[in-house]
Design a protein around this nucleic acid. Structure first.
Lengths: 126, 126
DNA sequence: CTGAATCCGCGGGGATACTG
DNA sequence: CAGTATCCCCGCGGATTCAG
């Protein structure tokens, strides 16, 4: 993630801070579960239990954990309906929607090169 | 990653196989190091040691490990020059280049919403 | 320089139980 | 139903060593 050359300059400090922040965000977002959750939320607002079902294979813990993280970063909005039983809904914010677009690109890529990759794997395992 | 409804149908078998394969690929690719390596290779052919320096913070082990994985999936081509000392170069294949484009999108997204996210975090931590 | 292999600590992440 | 907390194990990943 190319920020240019860095020197010991005076106000390069904030450049470096921005850079480390970028890497931090990148690390948060560039992980399997976060991406799959956002992709699921791309379909529209979802409840906790719905996500649990739609994001196949995710554990209770990972779901809450990633949702908190996404909420903290402002990619997901969490709205609690004060009813019983509790009803909590998650939606993508505008930044979240924007991110979703690029994730869609990733999904498209995956499907486009599925065969390509599968072939390459078999070739490699020999 | 939406493959539609699945039933116990006859030839849905390969649909399910394709799906699990897609998830597998997705898991391979949707990880910090793999993405950063591909991003680095986007600049052009790189040697092992160059990648080691450019992908900041990656360990020797993680680099080789991810390079093997990327090579296996056919995203990266590895060419060995029979000289001493050894010279090994890595380049993106066409699928790798295609993937790089979407990763660039991810990087752009990160920088565009940097401030947005930073603000959201401070709000959340209260 | 590139890379495989080994050792090992720490934390990711699953399972379970418990609140509101 | 949604969320937190606890226990605990397995495996990721760093450091180091050896080979080509």
């Amino acid at each position: 993630m190319g920020t240019k050359q860095l020197s010991g300059s005076p106000e390069d400090a904030d450049l470096r801070r921005a850079d480390s922040l970028a890497r931090e965000i990148f690390s948060d977002v560039a992980n399997k579960w976060a991406l799959l959750i956002i992709e699921a939320l791309g379909e529209g607002t979802r409840r906790f239990s719905e996500l649990r079902n739609e994001v196949e294979g995710i554990s209770h813990k990972m779901l809450t954990q990633n949702l908190r993280m996404l909420e903290r970063n402002g990619l997901v909005e969490r709205t609690v309906h004060p009813v019983v039983p509790p009803r909590v809904e998650y939606t993508l914010t505008e930044p979240g929607q924007a991110l979703r677009v690029t994730i869609d690109g990733l999904c498209d890529w995956t499907h486009r090169y599925l065969g390509h990759i599968d072939a390459s794997r078999h070739r490699f395992d020999a």
